[in-house]
Measured scan of single mutants.
Amino acid sequence: HHGSGALAALHADGPHAGLPVTRSDARVLIFNDWEERKRSEPWLRLDMSDKAIFRRYPHLR
Rank of each mutant, 00 (worst) to 15 (best):
H1V: 13
H1L: 06
H1N: 11
H1P: 10
H1G: 14
H1E: 09
H1C: 13
H2T: 14
H2F: 14
H2G: 05
H2I: 14
H2R: 08
H2Q: 13
G3A: 14
G3N: 13
G3T: 13
G3I: 14
S4N: 12
S4P: 10
S4K: 09
G5L: 15
G5C: 14
G5H: 11
G5F: 11
G5K: 11
A6P: 09
A6T: 14
A6R: 13
L7S: 11
L7K: 10
A8N: 04
A8I: 07
A8T: 05
A8M: 05
A9F: 09
A9K: 12
A9M: 14
A9Y: 12
A9N: 15
L10Q: 15
L10V: 09
L10K: 06
L10M: 06
H11G: 03
H11C: 05
H11Y: 14
H11K: 04
H11M: 04
H11N: 08
A12D: 07
A12G: 07
A12M: 09
A12W: 11
A12V: 13
A12N: 12
D13S: 15
D13R: 05
D13K: 10
D13M: 10
G14D: 03
G14T: 04
G14P: 05
G14I: 04
G14L: 03
G14N: 03
G14Y: 04
G14Q: 03
P15Q: 08
P15A: 08
P15T: 08
P15M: 07
P15V: 09
P15I: 07
P15E: 06
P15L: 14
H16F: 15
H16V: 05
H16Q: 06
H16T: 05
A17E: 12
A17I: 11
A17H: 07
A17K: 15
A17Q: 10
G18N: 05
G18L: 04
G18C: 07
G18T: 04
G18I: 03
G18A: 05
G18E: 04
L19M: 05
L19I: 02
L19K: 07
L19R: 15
P20R: 01
P20Y: 01
P20M: 02
P20C: 02
P20W: 02
P20S: 01
P20K: 00
P20V: 01
V21S: 11
V21M: 10
V21N: 04
V21L: 07
V21P: 04
V21F: 04
V21C: 15
V21I: 14
V21Q: 15
T22Y: 02
T22C: 10
T22N: 07
T22E: 03
T22L: 03
R23W: 10
R23Y: 15
R23N: 11
R23C: 14
S24A: 12
S24Y: 12
S24T: 09
S24I: 10
S24D: 14
D25N: 01
D25C: 02
D25T: 00
D25E: 08
A26R: 09
A26W: 03
A26E: 01
A26D: 02
A26G: 02
R27D: 01
R27P: 02
R27S: 06
R27A: 07
R27W: 04
R27L: 09
V28I: 13
V28E: 04
V28T: 07
V28L: 15
V28W: 15
L29I: 07
L29R: 03
L29P: 00
L29G: 00
L29C: 07
L29D: 01
L29E: 04
L29A: 05
I30P: 03
I30K: 01
I30R: 07
I30D: 00
F31N: 02
F31M: 09
F31D: 15
F31G: 01
F31P: 00
F31T: 05
F31A: 06
F31K: 15
F31I: 05
F31L: 08
N32Q: 11
N32L: 14
N32R: 15
N32A: 10
N32D: 09
D33H: 08
D33T: 05
D33M: 09
D33V: 04
D33I: 14
W34Y: 12
W34N: 01
W34P: 00
W34H: 05
W34V: 02
W34M: 01
E35G: 06
E35K: 15
E35M: 15
E35V: 14
E35R: 12
E35Q: 13
E35P: 01
E36Q: 09
E36Y: 12
E36A: 10
E36P: 01
E36R: 13
E36S: 13
E36C: 10
E36K: 08
E36W: 09
R37W: 02
R37H: 06
R37Y: 06
R37E: 03
K38N: 10
K38D: 01
K38I: 12
K38C: 15
K38R: 13
K38V: 12
K38L: 07
K38T: 10
R39T: 11
R39G: 10
R39D: 13
R39C: 13
R39N: 13
S40N: 12
S40T: 14
S40D: 09
S40Q: 09
S40W: 12
E41R: 05
E41C: 14
E41Y: 09
E41S: 07
E41G: 03
E41F: 05
E41L: 04
E41W: 06
P42I: 03
P42A: 04
P42H: 08
W43Y: 08
W43A: 15
W43G: 11
W43E: 13
W43D: 15
W43K: 08
W43T: 10
W43N: 09
L44Y: 11
L44Q: 09
L44A: 07
L44W: 04
L44S: 08
R45C: 15
R45P: 12
R45V: 12
R45I: 11
R45L: 05
R45W: 06
R45E: 11
R45F: 08
R45H: 11
L46H: 01
L46A: 02
L46T: 00
L46K: 01
L46C: 06
L46N: 01
L46G: 00
L46Q: 01
D47T: 01
D47G: 02
M48W: 15
M48N: 03
M48P: 06
M48R: 02
M48V: 12
S49M: 01
S49I: 02
S49T: 08
S49G: 05
S49Y: 01
D50E: 09
D50S: 08
D50G: 02
D50I: 15
D50R: 06
K51H: 08
K51L: 12
K51G: 08
K51A: 13
K51E: 15
A52C: 08
A52Q: 07
A52D: 04
I53V: 14
I53E: 00
I53S: 00
I53F: 01
I53Y: 01
F54N: 12
F54K: 03
F54Y: 13
F54S: 06
F54D: 15
F54P: 00
F54A: 08
F54H: 12
F54T: 08
R55T: 14
R55L: 14
R55S: 14
R55P: 01
R55G: 11
R55K: 11
R55C: 13
R56V: 12
R56E: 14
R56T: 10
R56I: 12
R56P: 01
R56Q: 10
R56A: 15
Y57M: 02
Y57G: 08
Y57V: 00
Y57E: 00
Y57W: 15
Y57D: 01
Y57N: 01
Y57L: 05
P58S: 02
P58I: 01
P58F: 00
P58Q: 01
P58Y: 15
H59R: 00
H59P: 00
H59G: 00
H59W: 02
H59D: 00
H59V: 01
L60S: 00
L60R: 00
L60T: 01
L60I: 02
L60Y: 01
R61V: 11
R61H: 11
R61Y: 13
R61S: 12
